[in-house]
Each structure stands twice: as C-alpha cells, then as structure tokens.
Nucleic acid binder design. Sequence first.
DNA 1: TAAGAAGATGCAACTTCGTTGCAAAATATT
DNA 2: AATATTTTGCAACGAAGTTGCATCTTCTTA
Lengths: 139, 139
Amino acid sequence: MEKSIDQLLKKSRLSITESRVKILELFFSQPDALAHGDIEKKTGEKFDRVTVYRTLQVFLAKGIIHTIPTNDNSIRYALCREACEEGHHHDNHVHFVCNDCGSTTCLEEITIPAIKLPKGYASSQVEMIVSGICRKCKK
Amino acid sequence: MEKSIDQLLKKSRLSITESRVKILELFFSQPDALAHGDIEKKTGEKFDRVTVYRTLQVFLAKGIIHTIPTNDNSIRYALCREACEEGHHHDNHVHFVCNDCGSTTCLEEITIPAIKLPKGYASSQVEMIVSGICRKCKK
DNA sequence: TAAGAAGATGCAACTTCGTTGCAAAATATT
DNA sequence: AATATTTTGCAACGAAGTTGCATCTTCTTA
C-alpha cells in the first residue's frame, strides 16, 4: 500500500510527503467520495487546512482525483481510475448520492448515456448525479 | 407580468413583497440560471444579502425554483416549470454550463435518459450537467 | 379601510470556507 | 552530506452563509 502510493506520487512527479501519503491512504481505504471537511476530520486534523486545500488542488491538477458537483455547496473528491492523465479527466461514470447516509460514490460500472444536444451546442464533459437510497441504507 | 408573478406567489401562499417580486422578475426576464451573487448584483444591491438568501430558500422550498449543482462551489438557481409542486421537484431536463461565458441554462427540451442502477440502489432524482460551448459563444 | 396579527426585512455579529504571502521545515538532488 | 527545491504551517485576510432580534411591511377581518 505504502509502496503503491509512493509509486503513484512518483508517477505524477510529486514529492512524497506525509500529508499527501496520508490523504491518499484515506481515499484508498474506503469507497466514498470525500469533501474537504471530511478529509480534515478523518486525518485527525493533523494537517493545516491550507495544506489539505493545496494537496487536493495538486491531486486534481495531476489527474489523481476528480470532483463531483453536489447541490449542497460542498464539492466532493474521488480517486480517478488509471485512465486519467495529467490535466485530462476521462471519467464518464455515474455518481450516486445517498439521501440517507449522505455518502457519495462512483458507480464505475455505469456509463453515462450519450445525449443529443440542441443545434449549436458543443459538449466537452458530461456529469450525471443520481440521488436516492444506496445499497447499504436500503437494507 | 406583475400580475402573473403575484399569482405565482399567491399560489404558493407567500406574501407579495418587493424583494420576492423583483427577484422573480429577474428570473423571468432572462433564460439563464443565477447564482446568489448574480442576483445580488442584478437587483442593484437593493436588498440585503440575508434577504436574498432567505428569498431563495423560500422559493426552493415552495418548488418555484430548483438548484443546479456545479463544480465551482456556487449553486445556481433556475425557475421550475409548472409541474413542480411544493417540496417536490419534477424537473428532469439537462443543464448546460458554458465554459466560455459561464452561463448555465436549462435545456428543457432534452430529457435525461433512463439508466440502470446496480442492484440495491433506489433512485429518486437524476441530475445531468453538460459543459462545453453554448450556442451564443460558438458563433 | 383601519387595527391588530402574522410575516418579512435589515442590521449586527458571528462562523465557516477558501486564498495568499512568507518564513521555517521537509524532501529531493548532486 | 550539502545545497537546491518543494512543501508546510502560520497569520491575516476576504468572501460566503447563518442566526437573533428589533423594526417595518403585508395580510386578515371586523
């Protein structure tokens, strides 16, 4: 684990620092997307707010994580699959937000269907966010 | 116009006040979705920040407007079609965000395609946000 | 249509969120 | 191991959003 995280950072030409490793471990240790606040809390408030902000920005720029828009004004972040490259995100999967437990997950196996835009519009990215009750909460 | 806005407010059992009327006029006078800040500016900063926040909250709760999640941490608001009722939004159209002019519009005529969720998930709402270049900017 | 009840507004104060500059510390490079 | 490069944490700041409360506006009904 340590190893593969180091690899990932090296591949992205980033120095291996404690905060980066810890934050990546956090992402790898569970399946949900995380908001900035979650990360601060779950790392035990060990790192400065500013460090967390900057770390997320760097990961975003390097294509290690991607953002998921929400309608509660709190962007969430999730790991990208291998396919993502620096500056270019290729995730076209559906995101699921649970109204019960609040978790946000990537449904990697569900591809966003193509749609036909009105004349004159050019699309460069499509987001699809399904909300409802997740598998865990439905039981 | 005045008349129909009054009607709308009455139908929602809301008192007819200057700020509510002015903010609704703003929404009706142009096709784009508006962020909180836009509304403050476009009403000539005539109303207190707090009033704008509260007005939007009330409109949301009454099903007069709906939110559009964005990935820049600024929720946008747009008018609902007649179909929306108090507490229940029925808009299932696609939203378009222009990367050039920044405008957010509802593509009322484009319906979100149905998708098949993994077993155990129940969907109650689907959002689809397409970003790219809008008709105006493409010219 | 005037008076009282109900509701909305604006102000002040506060919290949370996100950003920037800079010195100190950690990491990388030779 | 020494130096160059990055990253971190702190302090300070501005923007965004919330709450309580007194005042003003809108609604109700007699």
